[in-house]
Design a protein around this nucleic acid. Structure first.
Lengths: 256, 256
DNA sequence: TTTTAGGGCAGGTCTAGACCACCGTCTGCC
DNA sequence: GGCAGACGGTGGTCTAGACCTGCCCTAAAA
């Protein structure tokens, strides 16, 4: 339980004009990101109050915010704990590896192409760029338990990812984008439709021509700029999309 | 500004064991639902504190909860106001008429069957009921601009909707469920997949056998009980699903 | 050895103040 | 009449306590 390895660093600046609970919230967020693993306990509210010289109510306000973001969770009588990092909803809807692991399968990928191209008229329109703009094209065949599952193609404006093509094709595109280029996808749109397998796609996926496929086009944004357009074709016989629906404003079994 | 028409009714019971802020939150929720219109101002926090004999921090805790639910919103220097009720996300994902209207089409429906059946083994499992439980089955062909768009089949436990079958088939199932039976869908799950048109479905939808279709199975819940299981087949050539994606914990342009 | 009763600590709730920035209005000066 | 500043009200934040329930662990009792 000791786990005193990483003490919380940072101090409250009472002259900064930023609300104290906001400062503490960010201090805690950094601490969680850098020094905690899922399940780790945070110092108790009373300890934090003493450590930073604040009232407990103020500490609670900071913790409340992180609980609201589902970064941490409280357990009465035990403490406050770091949650398993949320699977990005960005990824959650269609994330390949998540879906595969949920089904107990082994995910894998075969890179079909990893190159720079000029934006076609269609791609220029989808990415809201000028025709001919350099794009990085990344096309993969995704497997589950060694069997083809989907064909996946991403297009990213080249100027957003300088040097990406000099290295090996990334295993996880979104990880590389966020960790190396600071491109953390903030929101997006998926367009989902059913389609029939074309001859080339059918061959890759090892299905018959005309078999039903799930086609998912995604536009992903950072701030207000689109940084990724992707098209994926999933084998209908092996893939289902699970979409949770919520009625807004009907939070139940949530303290909040 | 007066608006003193409806005073807030209800009192805090300090012996009930229910948290005071929870009691106040529900009192306010009722007040908002019964006596307020969007844009109405709530009494100030200080007024509420005095009216109910509470500390302002406690009042704020109650208001915080409603702000979190997006029922009301705060404006610094002005007050707290009732928000316009949100659109059901429940409907947002796949609502037929909404999608059609967004595309500028005229929605219509042809009732294929509206009857009571006993739950088959499959339906019993999907609805988490015993086999043979009476169900209302409601099957429709949905049209857009007169052209077939989807085949839609809903199954609802009959005991939830007494007398439903005595009347005409409803135009909007969800409206009838919520308005006549108080069944407001609170959350659900959609299972989306691609499939090939069976001969019967193909004939209804006026497509060739084997054409790709979007199959959407929905489980919709009120509280923790499933009240609707539905299966829809959408013509892939005429229907796309649009799914907005959000990264959790990345609230921008939201006071919160 | 098993069961039970505390003790200590966690978060949950509540109080009664305080000062701040922001907003609209009212008032008085020009 | 028009503008500027004062004023009162609002939500935003913060404090320094208080008592509650729930949880775990330990030590004593059975």
């Amino acid at each position: 339980m000791a786990g005193s390895a990483g003490a919380i660093t940072g101090e409250i600046d009472r002259t900064s004009g930023t609300a104290i609970y906001v400062q503490l919230r960010e201090i805690l967020r950094t601490y969680i990101a850098e020094s905690c693993r899922p399940g780790s306990a945070l110092p108790s509210e009373r300890d934090l109050a003493e450590r930073f010289g604040l009232a407990r109510m103020t500490v609670r306000q900071a913790i409340d915010a992180l609980v609201g973001e589902e970064v941490i969770e409280r357990v009465v009588g035990l403490g406050t704990f770091v949650r398993r990092p949320k699977l990005d909803l960005q990824v959650k809807l269609t994330s390949y590896s998540e879906e595969m692991q949920r089904r107990g399968m082994v995910p894998a990928a075969k890179v079909l192409s990893f190159e720079q191209i000029g934006a076609s008229a269609f791609l220029a329109r989808e990415l809201q760029l000028d025709e001919g703009t350099p794009l990085v094209r990344f096309r993969r065949l995704l497997l589950a338990d060694g069997e083809p599952m989907s064909v996946d193609e991403n297009f990213i404006p080249a100027h957003r990812v300088p040097g990406l093509l000099d290295g090996e094709p990334p295993t996880s595109l979104y990880n590389v984008l966020s960790e190396q280029y600071g491109l953390v996808m903030e929101w997006g749109e998926d367009m989902i439709e059913a389609t029939a397998a074309s001859p080339s796609t059918a061959r890759l996926l090892n299905v018959e021509v005309g078999s039903p496929l799930l086609k998912i086009q995604r536009h992903a944004f950072v701030a207000r700029t689109m940084v990724d357009y992707s098209v994926s074709y999933y084998r209908a016989d092996r893939y289902k999309l699970w979409v949770p629906l919520q009625r807004p404003g009907a939070r139940r079994s949530r303290s909040h």
